[in-house]
Amino acid sequence: MITCPIFFCAYIKAMVKIIYIEHNGKEHVAEVQNGLTVMEGAVQNDIPGIDADCGGSMSCATCHVYVKEDWYDKLPKKEMGEDDMLDQAYEPNSNSRLSCQISVSDDLDGLKVHIPEKQV
């Protein structure tokens, strides 16, 4: 019974919708595979404004995004070190996250992230 793909789909979506909003307001809706990070979703879908120089090792702060309050609290909590890296980001504030640290899951279907004016 468990091998039935339809059975699975009812519980875990293969793809999750993430909305990336550029600094100029331009919206990009991307289908991101469950389990990838928001950063990887941006890179795979050629969304401008997320550089991700270090490739996701939380050591460059060039995948910085802002997440508004309605979504911010639903995100996985920051791990140690993320705020330290955010200190170095371009214009960080209390809505800042590193998108490489946000794993995409069903709960985040429809997540909106705002991309800063620039990463450096």
Partner: peptide, 12 residues
């Protein structure tokens, strides 16, 4: 008189 910024390094 001086403003100093220490925000780490970035790769360019």
């Amino acid at each position: 008189d001086y403003v100093l910024g220490f925000f780490g390094l970035i790769m360019q």
